[in-house]
Design a protein around this nucleic acid. Structure first.
Lengths: 205, 205
DNA sequence: ATTGATTTTAAAACTGGTACGAATACAGTT
DNA sequence: AACTGTATTCGTACCAGTTTTAAAATCAAT
């Protein structure tokens, strides 16, 4: 259910369907148990039992215990790149990122947003999960830097772009941990934009 | 040898002296073995054996395996705070930090610097150590933000200061991982200084 | 020297993760 | 339908880091 193409429901063979089913069973059992008793109080063996599967099979589908919770690495990265690449005309990169982050941080409106918010609270409750999420998030640094570079007409990111990408990803983490996420967002982008706009306009000009 | 007061050699009781000796024996055995065969190829049990101590005793002194390598948390934090607090008059905070980072990155001159460089290379060779070092380093964020705030005449760091502190710590990691650390340093501080100087002068003015 | 608290230690247990080989289910071929 | 190769699953045993448990040693104070 992760990185396979989503909508057209390609006709999978029995094999792939079964594999996907096993994966889903494991994932479901894991999230249920984790929510009931907390991430740290559930062992891989228990997850395997609950999914009626051998422990080794769990690791065949998920490289680490933490991966049972985060099942969407590629989507995240794609989302991030799209924010930069597909922004409305006339909108700066910083502006696009700030807007996107803002939407993440504002009070949720649809039930989907509520669920996502609960999920994030669950993650915050377990240090190991927070660390893992942060690590995964920051792994997108290269992708983001590449997207920005190509938006600015470069084939390779410069040191400044790389730095900016890292900072921008950090801002998301900062805001997520902040009591006043909106203020944090604005403070951070305010700090960044001075140097960044100067640099990028210098590049374009 | 870590956070106890250093010079005057307070008269420790027998108990404390023995404890310190055990700790030192473990630490020595560990560094020797790690250097000889690599961090990942030495088990805690082996370290314990080499120090003629039970494995649990190792954990009584060091919370994790990685802690055997980093024995100086507080000193690091103090160093960082001093860079900001004890900078020469007329030198900006950014300038002081940049200078300090630069010294870390330049070719070492004294034998002490050489040893430190070898140590850093050793850390880079083991992902687990790099992660741990980064985590420890970033834990200084609050201390750094506090020091900056108090330099600017505030009792509490603002959102901007907190953000700046996080960015500045990240710069150190960026430069450490870069092929061209000096360029990275200058690019990063160039990016930061625009917004930061505006903000801090706005604060002072 | 005895007592009692505290520290230190050892041994075992637990947990995440890997290695290995065997068994099973599938897809494509004949 | 049988055959073959391949992918998935399984069970077990195992390793290394870490926690738990309880015994032993150590110290301070009487």
């Amino acid at each position: 259910m992760t990185s396979t193409t989503t909508s057209p429901a390609e006709p999978l063979g029995r094999r792939e369907r079964k594999k996907a089913a096993t994966r889903a069973a494991i994932s479901h059992a894991a999230t249920r148990l984790f929510m009931e008793r907390g991430f740290d109080n559930v062992s891989i063996r228990e997850v395997a039992d609950a999914a009626d599967v051998s422990p080794t099979t769990v690791f065949a589908h998920f490289p680490q215990k933490e991966a049972l919770v985060f099942d969407e690495d590629d989507e995240q990265r794609e989302h991030l790149v799209r924010i930069v690449r597909d922004r409305a005309p006339g909108v700066s990169i910083s502006q696009a990122l700030l807007d996107a982050y803002r939407a993440d941080v504002l009070p949720p409106e649809d039930p989907d947003g509520v669920r996502r918010r609960e999920f994030m609270a669950f993650i915050d409750a377990t240090p190991a999960l927070g660390d893992y999420a942060a690590k995964m998030w920051l792994r997108h640094e290269d992708a983001l830097a590449g997207a920005i570079a190509s938006e600015l007409g470069l084939t390779e990111p410069t040191e400044q772009i790389r730095t900016y990408a890292r900072f921008v990803l950090q801002v998301q983490l900062l805001a997520g941990a902040s009591e006043t996420p909106l203020e944090t967002l604005e403070a951070a982008f305010g700090l960044l934009d001075g140097g960044w706009q100067e640099y990028s306009s210098h590049l374009a000009g």
